[in-house]
């Protein structure tokens, strides 16, 4: 069977396994952990679309995550709109911000380290703005009132949140699969591999990159919207802080950059490792993140294709 067919079968199988996971995890702490894992997997999937397939490494994906989160929170708290409208508005806003900073950065030919730095700076500008303007609640943050009802994107039990997040993650996975199989996806990979050659073949590099960052921004905003609904609280540091940007890029790189399942595998490995560290240290902060950093360096040193690449290599050896 060719790899494309395997992926077409693997996507529903993985989604079905994730849908069945609450049977094994129960309805308590572990299900909550699984929910946040999927949330970060969705954010990582968004990063992977631009960074993995397109080769444009963003160090500021908090920009899109935070925008999704703030748009839905502000619409609810200040304008009284419902969170489902917030979900749509937040996603559009994430895509729009993506298009805006993509248009600026790519128009002026920023790539590699310079693109990384400019995305970082955009996220910082938004963090400072969110701290300074009145309608976001400033540095004190914004609190979404508790009104439990599915119509209000607030669920009585953890399983409700889990399945809601699973649907959002499925969207990010299917979008990635669709991109992978499309002409646009082929252009994107061509741009990553060799920009000059891609341009010589008549690919409009600017439009391809712009499309990728817009889509990536919208998907990252999805996870931000979910964050706001799940925790019902936001502040500029949570939404636009460098922590989110780092999470977004660690999972795909550890899992396998530019692969369909890399972000999910990376997110699961990181959460599991973080959990082990938490038990070890009685929840003292720091060690879990330090382990993520160490894992990143080990992967870069020994596994250039991440965990997915390692699985592939082992599979070939035994085949």
């Amino acid at each position: 069977m060719n790899p494309d067919r395997i992926k077409l079968i693997a996507v529903p199988v993985v989604l079905a396994a994730l849908a069945a996971a609450p049977l094994a995890l129960g309805t308590g702490y572990w299900l909550g952990l699984a929910t946040t894992t999927l949330m970060f997997a969705c954010l990582a999937q968004a990063w992977n679309l631009l960074g993995g397939y397109g080769g444009q490494f963003s160090y500021g994906h908090a920009l899109f995550f935070g925008t999704g989160a703030y748009v839905t929170a502000v619409l609810q708290v200040r304008l009284g709109l419902d969170p489902w409208t917030g979900l749509i508005a937040g996603t559009i806003a994430g895509g729009a911000i993506g298009a805006f900073c993509g248009a600026l950065s790519f128009r002026y030919g920023l790539k590699g380290s310079y693109f990384a730095l400019v995305t970082l700076a955009f996220a910082e500008v938004f963090r400072i703005l969110a701290t300074s303007v009145p309608f976001t609640g400033g540095g004190a943050g914004i609190l979404i009132p508790l009104k439990v009802s599915p119509a209000n994107f607030q669920f009585a039990d953890k399983a409700g949140f889990y399945y809601a997040m699973l649907i959002l993650f499925a969207v990010s996975l299917i979008v990635t699969l669709a991109v992978e199989r499309s002409r646009f996806g082929a252009y994107l990979v061509a741009v990553r591999e060799n920009e000059a050659a891609a341009a010589a073949l008549g690919i409009d590099i600017f439009r391809v990159k712009l499309g990728a960052i817009t889509l990536s921004g919208a998907l990252a905003a999805l996870s931000g919207v979910f964050y706001a609904q799940f925790f019902l609280y936001l502040d500029p540091h949570i939404a636009y802080g460098s922590g989110v940007s780092v999470e977004a890029l660690l999972a795909p790189i550890i899992g396998g950059i530019g692969t369909l399942f890399g972000p999910l595998i990376g997110a699961i490995v990181m959460r599991a490792l973080g959990e082990v560290a938490n038990v070890w240290t009685d929840g003292a902060p720091g060690l879990n993140l330090a382990l993520f950093g160490l894992l990143l360096i080990i992967v870069l040193r020994f596994l250039p294709d991440g965990i997915v690449g390692l699985i592939g290599r082992l599979g070939r050896r035994h085949a």
Partner: peptide
């Protein structure tokens, strides 16, 4: 970036 994550968080720990 990995080095900075390690140093920052070991210091925090």
């Amino acid at each position: 970036l990995g080095l900075s994550i390690i140093l920052d968080n070991l210091a925090l720990y």
